[in-house]
Design a protein around this nucleic acid. Sequence first.
DNA 1: TCTGGGGTCCTAGGACCC
DNA 2: TCTGGGGTCCTAGGACCC
Length: 367
Amino acid sequence: MPLIANKKDLSRIILHADMDYFFAQCEEREQPEIKGKPVVICVYSGRSKDSGAVSTSNYEARKFGIKAGMPIVRAKKLAPEAVFLPVNMELYHGISDEVMEILREYSGTLEQESVDEAFCDLTGKVTDFEEAKMLAASIKEEIKQKVGLTCSIGVGPNKLVAKIASDYRKPDGLTVVKPDEVKQFLAPLKITDLAGVGKKTGERLNELGVKTIGEMAKLSTDDLIREFGKAKGLWLEQASQGIDDSPVIEREGTGQIGRISTLREDTRDLTVILDAVYSLSEDVYKKLEARNLSFKSVSFVGISTDFKTRTKSHTLDAPVRDLDTIRTIAGNLAKAFLDENHLPLRRVGVRVSNLAGRKGQRTLGEF
DNA sequence: TCTGGGGTCCTAGGACCC
DNA sequence: TCTGGGGTCCTAGGACCC
């Protein structure tokens, strides 16, 4: 028995893989003739010919200033000659599975963060960061050969550093940050480069005269807590030092499943809204079935003409998986929503949460 | 310039229980 | 007559991410 049996080795080696301009790259793989042209992947709302927003675009399109979230009409003005394609989520999920399978081979633990990103805990798989770099290069090569796509990889002592490193050189990048390099690496980067610091937090930090992670690291813990509250303040303090103890976790299932869609016209007409709610409920139910999950809570989501999102939800005593329950509850919530909110609705959604696996599943008939 | 859709995590007040 | 504290769950909303 070793003398210090419980002394844990705290040093970890974490890898973050991020597929480059994923949706657009998937389309380039399927249609090689569009490669080299600007490609814009769009979510069409169906209201008029080009209403909707850009989901993502390839680098050729980005050169024209096209960005995710931008209205499609605006993207068309910036680059009329670009190839505009509707999202094809089935295709992307299929290709995502191919990528995740490869990552799984290399990783001790794999945490899929989204359709095109994942963390791998390489601790124990490799002995040092040099070896991790070679392994990362092999992963990139295998994804290129077998899937036909490029990705960017970051390696660091924790998830926070690995993630920011994968974003450092793109596309087709590989950045390794060793523990003793973390502070110099982070210091010149923008605070909004940190995952978790978005527009609002960024603006408030700017008001404090802070633009870079290095500048934030100089603030006192007290200042950060006073400005952002205890939890967020402490997190910002740790993040600015490149400290992050969160583990790489294999997540099973998810916390919620939802569907949302834009109505053809802004309306408060209950018939129209219930039609949409019922159709969305069916889609949600199909996803539950596919993943063999049951739910305890149902929410109705309404986005009014002022673009504010409001929700109403209801929780059952026990988990169920039943289409009629979703339809009925979501419909009732929609009615109550219209009583409480007086603006016309632009978009509506149905969401189930409080998800549970096989155990505890029942249908209404059993009650 | 006109605005998609899918998520995660956190907070805060109130209900309820011990 | 005066009277605690802690924990958990639900609901609603907000920030953030891809």
